[in-house]
Simulated scan of single mutants.
Amino acid sequence: MAQSFWDAAAPVISVTERHPFLVSMVEGTLKPENFAYYAIQDSLYLTNFADCLRLLGEKMADLNAEVSIRLHQFAAGVEEDEMHRTFFKQWNIDTTNAEPMPNTLLYTSYMMRIVSTRPLAEGLAVLLPCFWVYMHVGNCMLKLREKLGDSVERPPEFDAWIDMYSGEGFEKVVNDYKAIVDDMSKGVDSETLKRMEGHFIMACKLEHLFWDQANDLAGWPEFSESK
């Protein structure tokens, strides 16, 4: 069933896999300030993502203890987040006063609302794109990197990002989560499946907007008292 969600979101995903932020990262033309912006926002996002996984694990506890434990393991893995800490250290990124930018807040607010207020199956569906889309674009960027070969030099952090999301370890995590969504989909009615699909598509759109804001260095408007 998860595959049907992916197929329904194909128009969004096909555009995202060619996103200029991602392509410029592989081509080595992405500016350091854009990558730093992205890394900070992604770290803020992942804090909320881990909270959502933990909440789903709590909801799952009475239904399937094994799956509940696996969801908590996903959350713990997200919180470890060694890659981002390495980025922050190597790029001298200060996250002390970091705040979520508009599209980060839009995405996390939507995600948290669905996980907190909607049935478990819908909550599982809304988190799936974060796993699956990242694996997909990671593999797309890996193919582009292989195509470019040694003709391009890029910061090692860019290669680390590509290696992380195109790697076998991350693929296993994605496949495990997809299996959970598939199993949950078997026991719900057609209306719930439609809502799950809708959440999946919306999250795919929000993934795209997340890279848009990093590409544009989008921020909050300046507010001042009128005189």
Rank of each mutant, 00 (worst) to 15 (best):
P20V: 10
A160F: 01
L124Q: 01
E122F: 08
I201G: 01
V78S: 01
S4H: 11
N103T: 10
R113Y: 13
D189V: 08
V174I: 11
F5L: 05
Y37V: 03
M83L: 15
D7G: 05
I40R: 07
F200N: 02
P100K: 07
L144D: 04
G138C: 15
V174R: 06
Y37I: 05
E197F: 07
T29E: 02
A9I: 04
T117S: 14
T117D: 12
D212Y: 07
R18C: 09
L142D: 06
N97V: 14
E171L: 14
W211D: 05
C204K: 14
L206A: 05
H199C: 08
A2D: 00
G149P: 00
K186N: 05
M202D: 01
M111V: 14
A10I: 08
I69L: 13
P20S: 05
A65Q: 06
G138W: 12
L46Q: 06
L148T: 06
D159T: 15
T86L: 10
C204T: 11
F49C: 04
A203N: 08
D42N: 13
N103H: 14
L206N: 05
A61K: 09
H136Y: 15
R195C: 09
H72A: 13
I13H: 05
Y110R: 15
L53P: 00
L44S: 00
G167C: 08
M101A: 10
M184L: 09
T47G: 03
V115Y: 05
A160K: 04
M112N: 13
V152F: 06
F158A: 08
L56Y: 02
V67R: 07
T117Y: 15
P100R: 07
A39L: 09
A65G: 04
P32I: 06
F131M: 08
E207W: 03
E66Y: 04
G138D: 11
Q3C: 06
S151C: 04
V12W: 04
L71G: 02
L71S: 02
L193H: 05
